Amino acid sequence: MFKHDKKKRPDTVSVILDDRAVDLPARVSVAAGLLDIGEIISRTSPSSGKPCAPHCLMGVCFECLMEIDGVKRQACMTEAREGMVIRRHLDPEDKGDCP
């Protein structure tokens, strides 16, 4: 679904994803970048405990909500930047400490 031209390697930005360093394509949203590297699950549903993934990719569904630089944000509406710290709170018990 999200594939790059094999002849051209996209520019990347280094981010911290769930306490590990990863490279995401530059000039794309965090959600698109995570999908590009195979990180499909964006969060765990607080009500059902089931994994969620980005759905609409245009800011309507909130399925890509995650903690980005200490603030809960929609990953599809946030451009990936060098040095970002991203936490997906995949453990249903981990609600995060941001508002």
Score class of each variant (00 low, 15 high):
residue 35 L to T: 07
residue 27 R to S: 12
residue 41 I to S: 14
residue 29 S to E: 07
residue 57 L to S: 01
residue 23 D to L: 08
residue 69 D to G: 02
residue 43 R to P: 00
residue 92 P to M: 09
residue 72 K to S: 14
residue 36 D to K: 12
residue 30 V to F: 00
residue 30 V to Q: 03
residue 27 R to K: 11
residue 17 L to F: 01
residue 72 K to Y: 15
residue 93 E to K: 15
residue 26 A to G: 09
residue 92 P to G: 07
residue 67 E to Y: 03
residue 10 P to F: 11
residue 7 K to H: 12
residue 41 I to G: 06
residue 98 C to D: 12
residue 49 G to I: 03
residue 57 L to C: 04
residue 29 S to N: 05
residue 19 D to Q: 15
residue 28 V to E: 13
residue 70 G to R: 01
residue 65 L to H: 11
residue 25 P to F: 11
residue 88 R to I: 06
residue 73 R to V: 00
residue 82 E to Y: 05
residue 45 S to F: 05
residue 22 V to S: 01
residue 86 I to G: 00
residue 35 L to H: 01
residue 16 I to F: 08
residue 40 I to C: 09
residue 83 G to H: 05
residue 28 V to W: 10
residue 82 E to L: 03
residue 13 V to A: 01
residue 24 L to D: 04
residue 4 H to V: 13
residue 77 M to A: 06
residue 41 I to Q: 14
residue 3 K to D: 06
residue 4 H to G: 14
residue 68 I to S: 02
residue 39 E to Y: 05
residue 87 R to Y: 00
residue 94 D to T: 12
residue 92 P to E: 10
residue 5 D to K: 09
residue 43 R to D: 01
residue 10 P to K: 10
residue 27 R to M: 11
residue 44 T to A: 13
residue 91 D to A: 14
residue 81 R to Q: 15
residue 31 A to V: 06
residue 32 A to P: 05
residue 68 I to Y: 00
residue 95 K to N: 12
residue 51 P to Y: 08
residue 87 R to E: 06
residue 62 F to H: 10
residue 78 T to Q: 08
residue 54 P to K: 02
residue 43 R to C: 02
residue 92 P to I: 07
residue 36 D to G: 09
residue 85 V to F: 05
residue 35 L to A: 02
residue 39 E to M: 05
residue 66 M to S: 03
residue 2 F to C: 10
residue 37 I to D: 09
residue 11 D to K: 15
residue 63 E to N: 10
residue 34 L to P: 04
residue 48 S to C: 08
residue 61 C to H: 09
residue 17 L to Y: 00
residue 66 M to H: 03
residue 41 I to A: 12
residue 74 Q to F: 03
residue 52 C to W: 13
residue 43 R to L: 03
residue 97 D to A: 13
residue 13 V to E: 01
residue 90 L to C: 12
residue 13 V to R: 00
residue 79 E to W: 15
residue 23 D to Q: 15
residue 46 P to H: 04
residue 23 D to W: 04
residue 55 H to N: 14
residue 92 P to L: 09
residue 78 T to V: 14
residue 24 L to H: 03
residue 44 T to D: 10
residue 75 A to Y: 01
residue 40 I to R: 11
residue 6 K to Y: 14
residue 48 S to W: 05
residue 49 G to L: 02
residue 71 V to Q: 05
residue 16 I to R: 09
residue 11 D to N: 14
residue 15 V to P: 00
residue 81 R to M: 13
residue 33 G to V: 06
residue 99 P to W: 11
residue 56 C to H: 09
residue 57 L to M: 10
residue 19 D to V: 14
residue 51 P to T: 12
residue 12 T to Y: 01
residue 15 V to S: 01
residue 75 A to T: 05
residue 78 T to I: 04
residue 10 P to T: 13
residue 52 C to F: 13
residue 13 V to L: 00
residue 40 I to Y: 11
residue 67 E to Q: 06
residue 1 M to E: 00
residue 25 P to S: 13
residue 19 D to N: 15
residue 89 H to I: 08
residue 61 C to N: 10
residue 67 E to V: 04
residue 84 M to L: 09
residue 91 D to E: 14
residue 39 E to R: 04
residue 19 D to H: 15
residue 27 R to Q: 12
residue 33 G to K: 02
residue 65 L to Q: 08
